[in-house]
Design a protein around this nucleic acid. Structure first.
Lengths: 349, 349
DNA sequence: TCCGGATCTGACAACGTTGTCTAGGCTCTA
DNA sequence: TAGAGCCTAGACAACGTTGTCAGATCCGGA
């Protein structure tokens, strides 16, 4: 009776039992190592033997088990990418750029979203390390990366992108948030604005504070005072951004222009301004798809996300190729894209 | 002299040589298996022993090597996702949705872009299989997926998304391209348009032909003839789309409305229409960020990309949990989002 | 005929982990 | 106090591959 029950256990015969090199070797009537040689295109196999092995491989549907290979060789030919949100259009080109570089180096890409949660960032990065990725590219969510030190010491190359790492020394590739914001605000100042609002991301996010610093620098350079009610840092959910924008616009002395700290803020502010009775100027950090088609066009401080990713990945692979130099901080320039500039609403007072 | 040269070989002492369970066991003065038990939280270890092991783990900076674990256990707790382009904003939410489901099941996500190249899709998928992912989610670039049959037979669950697989029987999750396009075109017809253009992706892409079929169905249902010069399938690069749109608009009897086959086409057409002397109606497949802010607003047939990804991933994990049922084809509804509807330019003749 | 050398091939150990199985120590009961 | 039974702990093999090494075969030349 137990024998009659057995067939039911496995839904299909030998389901999940893949052939191994041993099976191929047996079928081809050769040794294990010869199969290995054929599979890896190593020299020293007669054409005839090779053909027999190839036939056996095809017949059995053999595919090398890379887990075993990795275990043996110690290198995984894969890198891990921890970003904030796979769904964020800003990071998509970065993701792709990293993939392209990885591909050029024959490596696969494992990735995940930290969702701006330091604990989740940590879990992901360490899970990647357990898989023994050769290298890590991280968009930091947290500000303490000491947890990575054993991994880095053990040889996992690590590059941080978009924001600097906390409490640890490693390569970083950034956009010039400070300079970009300063330039964007200066553009508003040049058009006569004196009361300029700033709405940005939460203060624990490095880029947010850097951009605010740029805002203050531009204001200071122009000799303009900053009323603290014009400045707002916090979550970039539409509700908050909308409320803050409306607050700044409805005071007795309303701001005449706004600087939006990132793409999500800009998108919400654009919607608020579309309903504003009087024209309000806007400059946003990060470019937006279709931004050129809005009227008035939205002037932006654009980052080159793809270049950010490419630079970080190239740096990583240089490390993997054994280049040993002290950790470096690369800051990529931003680009002010002036749109509908002629129509930028002038300041009134 | 050779001995004096040796130190230079390894940049830092024991660099890359990670501690193993054996090292931990030696340091803690316990057996190998006891370390394994502690690392995996298995029962049967006294608190005192456990503490000794934990201390050794911390002191050595041990981290379990998942490659070895995978080799031993046969399951990788990871799934592979082959999409068309990691940088395409349409696929970003799908990507994220798949990640979330994977995460909920304790699996990691490996992904890559096929760049719409069947050969590259194949390479990626097979590379994932060599890594022994538990399952695959594929947005097909090619139309022959027989290469996956040995893998599927060997137990790698596979789900296709966004487009059906070619030549093989597997689960598929799609949007209702046909129905969506028909509804979108019917919307234009309802506003009095009789000469409606269709610009879509290359004919070998399933969604492109399905949407075209929907267009033809809507025209036929309204008793409207279709002049073949109104229909254009091909690469969605801006140059071609722009040229085709301009061609359709500059004929003696120009089209009075356009249906755009996907987000990239819509973006380009919007730009062309912004310069058009007379108003031309537009409905696009896929929603666009900020589409509501354009004037006139762009009416779209929206797909729920996140739901597409979620559905596919859930299906995959059901398979992995052993649910055995014949391959299924799920078709998700689209949603017509009417924008600036009152202002939809009416047909003139 | 024999030998050196090149070429092809396979036996074997090792990579780091987990499953199985057994040994030893302890507690509890009769 | 002996024996049953439980709990903790470790020895060992196995997962599928690759690196090392040594054996077998074949060639040409002496």
């Amino acid at each position: 009776m137990s024998s009659s029950a057995q067939p039911a256990r496995s839904p299909s015969p030998r389901y999940g039992a893949r052939p191994t090199m041993k099976d191929v070797a047996a079928r081809a009537g050769v040794g294990l190592k010869t199969v290995s040689r054929v599979v890896n295109g190593e020299p020293g196999v007669t054409p005839d033997t090779e053909r027999r092995v190839q036939d056996a491989i095809t017949a059995l549907g053999f595919r090398r088990n890379d887990s075993a290979r990795i275990l043996r060789k110690g290198r995984t030919a894969s890198i891990g990418l921890v970003l904030e949100d796979l769904a964020d259009p800003f990071y998509a080109p970065l993701n792709r750029a990293v993939e392209e570089v990885a591909r050029a180096h024959g490596a696969l890409l494992i990735n995940g979203s930290s969702a701006e949660d330091p604990e989740r960032e940590r879990e992901l990065a360490l899970a990647f390390c357990a898989r023994r990725v050769d290298g890590l590219i991280i968009i930091p969510a947290g500000d303490d990366h000491r947890y990575l030190e054993p991994e880095i010491a053990a040889g996992i190359a690590t590059v941080f992108v978009d924001r600097p790492a906390g409490m640890t020394d490693a390569d970083v590739v950034l956009s010039d948030s400070f300079g970009g914001a300063r330039e964007g605000v200066a553009h508003l100042v040049a058009h006569g604005h004196r009361r300029i609002g700033f709405i940005g991301d939460r203060p624990r996010i490095h880029t947010a504070t850097e951009r605010l610093r740029g805002y203050r620098a531009a204001m200071a350079a122009a000799g303009l005072p900053v009323d603290e009610s014009w400045v707002s840092l916090g979550p970039t959910v539409p509700e908050r951004v909308r409320a803050e924008a409306e607050r700044m616009l409805s005071r007795p002395q309303p701001v005449t222009a706004l600087f939006a700290g990132n793409n999500r803020v800009t998108a919400t502010v654009v919607r608020v301004l579309a309903r504003s009775p009087r024209p309000v100027a806007l400059v946003g950090f990060d470019d937006l798809e279709l931004a050129d088609l809005l009227s008035p066009g939205v002037t932006v401080v654009a980052q080159d996300a793809a270049r950010l990713g490419r630079t970080a990945a190239e740096r990583l692979f240089r490390r993997l190729d054994g280049v040993a130099e002290p950790p470096q901080r690369v800051e990529l320039p931003t680009r002010l894209i002036v749109r509908g500039s002629g129509e930028l609403p002038p300041a009134e007072g």
